[in-house]
Design a protein around this nucleic acid. Structure first.
Lengths: 201, 201
DNA sequence: TAGGGTGCAGAACATTCGTTCGGTCATCGG
DNA sequence: CCGATGACCGAACGAATGTTCTGCACCCTA
């Protein structure tokens, strides 16, 4: 019995409207604004709904008793195909998993995490395309097999880290490019923690 | 002259404290709470600081005059190679762009956005690999050329949407797979808005 | 058709909010 | 030594907030 956001049937709709509002403004509005948002006209009703959302974990309170998003507020469904066509939204958790936010999924330590926009096609066989954003965790060491961001000739370069006779090398994932065997020390900027691609529309 | 958060010297500190508070609670607190957070004891002073942050773009207002994060509140650096090795963090905006959060970058309408875990390698030439998470915006129509999630034989399938003589078809990005020409109506579940790959470590 | 639960409206009220205005006390240039 | 400026405190006040309580029109079920 996973989700139970159907107690009053409109709660799901209310929650979605609030989530969209939050996505636009990044704040939880006041009860009167919420009432307008939901198309109801009684703050008392908003109060009741909020109480339900709170019990369900979608809303919470700061230590100062201000309303705030709860732990489940940013939950996003993850579908694992195959799923039945008729009811892809069925409450039954078949094929569904939950993820809090994409940020949380990819970023372990925000202060050590950066995005780097990928240039060129030297890693295309690893599914890393030009224009993609590489989520990079800054750190100066890495293990062979990891995708690393190294600094070569004053430029970032993204490659597999490899090892040849005790020497670290940078291997592209594209036969058209050569393996880079750095003279002296190899300067590693960080390692790949994830990848983000945005489809422009 | 890129950043100018130094007017009163403590403003940068105040902003960081507010950002930390927001990171924890996902809301902007009231002026009195802010005063406590900053270690000052006059709401009037908070009001003045807020006004400065507002002018600098770090804070803003909802249509209902509620304080909210401004466009620069979530700024995160994006490196655009090439960058000089010595100072990849230099304040000078050379090679840097700014992005708020990964979520915001990919998700326009949270309530209509889902993640689908990719199965198989039929889209590998488009850089969509098994295990990747497709960010899908739910909608029942799409234009040829877009990557769509369609429902075929009760399973999600990810393909390019194509057109052959007024008929919509599904094209894989892998020569080993055939073009799918659906009989009757093609059921589109959503369109690709982005892609997320997590590197497991 | 009586009765009990739901889904919402409306008013009353103490509390809290943000603003405005007038202070105080250091620092600093002249 | 003086006036200006900047950083902050404190009180007062109307407006807005969230809570509580009552009311009412619906269904259902009996």
């Amino acid at each position: 019995m996973p989700l139970n956001t159907q107690k009053p049937q409109r709660d799901r709709e209310y929650l979605e409207k609030l989530q969209d509002y939050y996505a636009e403004h990044k704040v939880i509005p006041s009860y009167s604004v919420l009432a307008g948002l939901w198309g109801v006209s009684a703050k008392s009703w908003v109060s009741a709904c909020v109480k339900r959302f709170e019990e369900a974990g979608f809303l919470g309170w700061t230590p100062d008793r201000q309303l705030k998003p709860g732990r489940r507020f940013f939950e996003r469904r993850v579908a694992d195909a195959p799923v039945h066509a008729g009811q892809p939204h069925a409450a039954a958790a078949d094929g569904y998993d939950l993820v809090s936010s994409i940020d949380e999924m990819l970023v372990r330590e925000p202060s050590k995490t950066e995005l780097i926009r990928v240039k060129g096609d030297s890693m295309i066989d690893a599914g890393i395309h030009e224009g993609d954003f590489l989520v990079v965790e800054r750190r100066h060491h890495a293990s062979p097999g990891e995708v690393v961001v190294a600094i070569v000739d004053n430029e970032f370069t993204v490659k597999y880290l490899g090892k040849e006779r005790e020497e670290l090398v940078l291997r592209p994932a594209n036969k058209a490019y050569p393996v880079i065997r750095p003279r002296g020390r190899l300067e590693i900027y960080g390692v790949m923690a994830g990848l983000v691609r945005k489809v422009f529309r």
